[in-house]
Nucleic acid binder design. Structure first.
Length: 472
RNA sequence: GGCCUCAUCGUCUAACGGCUAGGACAAUGCCCUCUCACGGCAUAAAUAGGAGUUCGAUUCUCCUUGGGGCUGCCA
């Protein structure tokens, strides 16, 4: 490793594949990624699958797919289950140097101890009963039963400088000897994490605030192993509307769920970056480049933030409107019926007209299905609120007659053909029935846009249907 | 309970001792308009409470209150 590379920052996103990637995870990944890119450093993805019971390959896939979809690319990829030998090595070192010891206490014993301490009003922690077991005793018991490995927590104050919170201090006397492995081949989070951060050359640890109390344990481990210290930044939690943590254990939605509803990556990223961070010159809409250029931990919020779905909707609508028809059609691909795709030109026009009304891609079909198939409607729909049945009938007949002889069905030509009538009869008297007849709906794009998209033949048919309804 | 931590409109936030506390989402009203949406304009809406430091506190200190996280052989 050269001197120059040595100075590069290196960050990691370290999710455990025990569930699909959620909003909180993405925000953590995003801030790591943004800082790494801002500094011209590296971003690594580390799958923390030491919990064999709950880790699943499909979740690892989901995490990778989701990050790719969002554009959060990683430079290196690791999986903890591939690195068991490394943890074993350090575990043996710790054991040999007596920084760690085997513990054979049963879960029942531990639970009783815990309850007893609690009822006496003293802070619960492991008593250290197995700390003084002799080597012979340990070897003997290991042949018959499984023991866990505990780290001898040094008794002192540990403090670190957090990039978002400043100095944070803990008293390790309150912590007790933490279990760092269930055996030589089964490392646990606090330990595997420390080994990996060292071996992978991580410089900055950026993670959720829920890990803040793990930090002193990890620092204590680093100290006895002679690992260099790291820079920490603990991000405020993302909260639900009840102000409670939004975690995988809650019913928090996964990124896949948001994708399925029709949220797009630009909106998700923009929304999330604003949840806990703000650019210096207050703005809401930011490109990825601007985020990278301007990101800094000094501007990261300390207090937890409530997830605000309306703002996400607004941003999503904004980014949707920025797209051109081809981009929109390909984004819409999984949402629309195959039949619609056969009418490419019409679909293109529909997409451009309806994008103003769309907040999520998932709304597109219900918003625009009438373009492809007119549903039955009540004849009262055709009558404008300030009009009556007779005028409506007359006006529609007039429109029908006008359109039937119109060759050029372009927007401008349509307007100049119909406007005289609309001006003479009152715009609402003419345009409302026309639009209602064409769409079968109370709310829709304007009549000229509908005529243009539907074409002469279909427009006339729909108007005839309306006339028939009124004369029956 | 213990430890850590946080506190500006309903929500996301700006103001890093000095204007009538600014913006955005949402809400409401108006304009545009045949409708819906987009867009434009406008209104309402906040420094949790109490001491202290200071000529002056949203900002600094302390206390109170309230919220959150952790307290796993999960991460």
């Amino acid at each position: 490793m050269t001197q120059k590379e040595d100075k590069k920052v290196k960050l990691r996103f370290a999710p455990s594949p025990t569930g699909p990637l959620n909003i909180g995870g993405v925000r953590t990944a995003l801030f790591n990624w943004l800082f790494a890119r801002h500094e011209g450093g590296l971003f690594v993805l580390r799958i923390e699958d030491t919990d064999r019971q709950r880790s699943e390959a499909r979740y690892e896939e989901d995490i990778k797919k989701s990050l790719e979809w969002l554009g959060l690319s990683w430079d290196e990829l690791y999986r903890q289950s591939d690195r068991l030998e490394r943890y074993k090595f350090y575990l043996q070192t710790l054991l040999e140097k007596k920084y760690a010891y085997y513990c054979f206490c049963s879960e029942k014993e531990l639970e009783d101890e815990y309850q007893a301490q609690l009822s006496q009003g003293i802070p619960p922690k492991y008593s250290g009963r197995c700390k003084s077991l002799s080597d012979e005793e340990v070897q003997k018991r290991l042949k018959k039963e499984n023991g866990v490995i505990r780290f001898k927590m040094p008794e002192k104050e540990i403090s670190f400088n957090d990039l978002v919170r400043g100095r944070v201090t803990f008293d390790t006397r309150l912590i007790g000897d933490v279990i760092i492995a269930k055996g030589l081949n089964e490392p646990l989070y606090n330990f595997a994490n420390v080994v990996d951060d060292f071996e992978m050359g991580i410089t900055h640890v950026v993670r959720g605030e829920e890990h803040i109390s793990n930090t002193p344990r990890q620092i204590a481990l680093q100290e006895v192993l002679n690992f260099p210290s790291l820079v920490y930044a603990h991000l405020p939690l993302i909260l639900g509307s009840n102000k409670k943590k939004l975690s995988k254990r809650d019913l928090a939605k996964s990124i896949g769920d948001y994708k399925a509803e029709g949220y797009i990556p630009e909106a998700m990223i923009n929304f999330l970056v604003l949840l806990g961070w703000h650019p210096k010159k207050d703005r809401e809409i930011l490109s990825i480049k601007e985020m990278i250029d301007e990101f800094s931990f000094e501007r990261v919020q300390k207090a937890g933030g409530v997830f605000n779905p309306e703002k996400l909707d607004w941003l999503n609508g904004h980014y949707l409107r920025l797209k051109n028809p081809d981009e929109l059609i390909s984004a819409l691909d999984v949402f629309i019926p195959e039949k619609w795709k056969e009418e490419k030109e019409r679909l293109k026009k529909v997409v451009m007209v309806e994008k103003e009304r769309m907040k999520r891609l998932g709304e597109f079909v219900s918003l625009s299905d009438f373009f492809f198939e007119l549903r039955d409607y009540e004849k009262t729909l055709l009558i404008w609120k300030k009009s009556n049945e007779k005028d409506t009938f007359e006006n529609l007949k007039h429109i029908h007659a006008t359109l039937i002889s119109l060759e050029d069905f372009s927007h401008e030509s349509l307007e100049s053909a119909i406007n005289p009538l609309a001006e003479a009869q009152g715009r609402g008297n003419v345009l409302w029935p026309l639009r209602a007849a064409l769409s079968g709906r109370a709310a829709s794009p304007g009549p000229f846009e509908l005529l243009d998209i539907l074409g002469k033949k279909e427009s006339l048919e729909r108007i005839s249907v309306a006339i028939k309804k009124l004369s029956s």
